[in-house]
Write a protein that binds this DNA or RNA. Structure first.
Length: 381
DNA sequence: AATTAAATCAACCGCAAATAT
DNA sequence: AATATTTGCGGTTGATTTAAT
């Protein structure tokens, strides 16, 4: 039994908004706020449904919209976020100030998807296209409608049990494997991702990606991928990295928004109000992806909790602490990943079973929201 | 210059969750 | 507790703009 649209029964206007309608809506909302959207059109003297008014305001009239073309950094961030969040446009948009979910969705569908494909990356899985073709033996798939691709390819990373709260469950249908390599391998990368490791102890190049908006109590995601020269990887073998996420405000102490890499644990509080990390001489300048830290693709990963227990919805809500250990065959490496505090989103990457039935960490993008500091520490194994 | 194809983007639709009654 | 209404989201459509022939 079909349902009529909300505009139908009252013969409400549809289609593009006229400047007069825009003006009415702006005037009403700036004066009274939107309150209950369903009552807005009547109060504002508009022959539209509340839904249409809401959409128009959110996507077009809101004063804090940035508009204009997406910057390289924004594009990078969108790809990174899509790799972890999938098609959850509203969540992606919440980390890009001034951008709407609709705008990002359009940008993705019309532009980014194509770019990724041209770069040999499947925009849905964020894996190399060749890999997908090998599995599907269907190289002509690229011309297939997006809906077909999405419906057929991505039930793999759905969490073991869907969350019953906060609308997370339905959005997992397109959860994907984080993109690895795109920014390492392609010259279109933003400077942040490809910049050589700076000599200083901190990572100034990455700092701008950690835009803080204290009034709104949110920040954009920090993008933490950084390419590492292979020589450095071998040097890392004797070190034990620890990744911790700290609340940006701990007992009232304001932390910096920079991303640090250190060979020590959080070492000291400096004299001011900013927590500083003691930097390492060899590995300054950023957070390393686990793909770089893991010398073998099939390094064994042990999770403190059973894989089935790990729920992305819990990560999103920041309600759990989880840790994982990667044990490499040839190197005595152990990586501890821990998330702490509430309202922190940590993309541990996607856990997948390899052919030996072992859980395998595919990527390790780390994302923080609200005021958090991300640090990586190395210590001797 | 005219036509066609591709790209872009605003807005709609239906569904599900959240909230109100 | 059950039902109705509202809100928010993602997928999709279709009009418009831009590029290619």
């Amino acid at each position: 039994m079909g349902r009529q649209s909300c505009c139908y029964k009252q013969k409400l206007r549809k289609g593009l908004w006229s400047p007069e309608e825009d003006e009415k809506l702006i005037r009403h909302i700036t004066k009274y706020g939107h309150g209950c959207w369903s009552s807005v059109p009547k109060q504002a003297g508009l022959e539209r449904c509340g839904k249409s008014c809401r959409l128009r305001w959110i996507n077009y009239l809101r004063p804090d919209l940035k508009r204009g073309t997406f910057s390289k950094q924004e594009e990078s961030l969108i790809i990174e976020l899509h790799a972890v969040l999938g098609n959850r446009w509203s969540q992606i948009a919440s980390r890009l100030p001034g951008r709407t979910d609709n705008e990002i969705k359009n940008f993705w569908n019309s532009c980014v998807k194509k770019k990724l494909r041209q770069s040999g990356i499947d925009p849905n899985t964020h894996k190399p296209l060749a890999e997908m073709e090998d599995k599907t033996s269907n190289s002509g798939d690229l011309k297939a409608p997006a809906t077909t691709l999405e419906k057929t390819k991505h039930s793999v990373h759905k969490p073991a049990s869907s969350s019953s709260s906060s609308g997370e469950s339905r959005t997992w249908k397109n959860s994907v494997t984080p993109t690895k390599g795109f920014f390492h391998d392609h010259e279109s990368s933003s400077a942040c991702h490809l910049s050589p490791l700076p000599q200083s102890g901190f990572a100034p190049d990455c700092a701008p990606l950690f835009e803080m908006n204290q009034e709104l109590n949110c920040s954009t995601i920090s993008t933490v991928l950084l390419s590492v020269p292979s020589g450095n990887i071998s040097a890392l073998m004797s070190l034990k990295p620890n990744i911790d996420l700290f609340r940006d405000e701990i007992d009232g102490i304001q932390c910096s928004s920079d991303v640090y890499l250190s060979n020590s644990r959080r070492s000291s509080m400096n004299t001011g109000s900013v927590i500083e990390l003691q930097s390492s001489t060899s590995f300054d300048g950023g957070i390393l992806p686990f793909s770089e830290l893991t010398p073998e693709k099939n390094a064994h990963v042990q999770l403190e909790r059973e894989h089935e227990d790990l729920k992305w919805s819990e990560y999103l809500q920041g309600t759990i602490t989880a840790s994982a250990t990667i044990q490499s065959q040839s190197h005595p490496l152990q990586y501890d990943i821990k998330t702490e505090s509430q309202s922190v989103l940590v993309g541990l990457g996607t856990w997948q079973q390899n052919q030996q039935g072992q859980q395998q960490l595919q990527s390790s993008n780390i994302y923080g929201k609200d005021f958090h500091m991300v640090s990586v520490g190395f210590g001797q194994v």
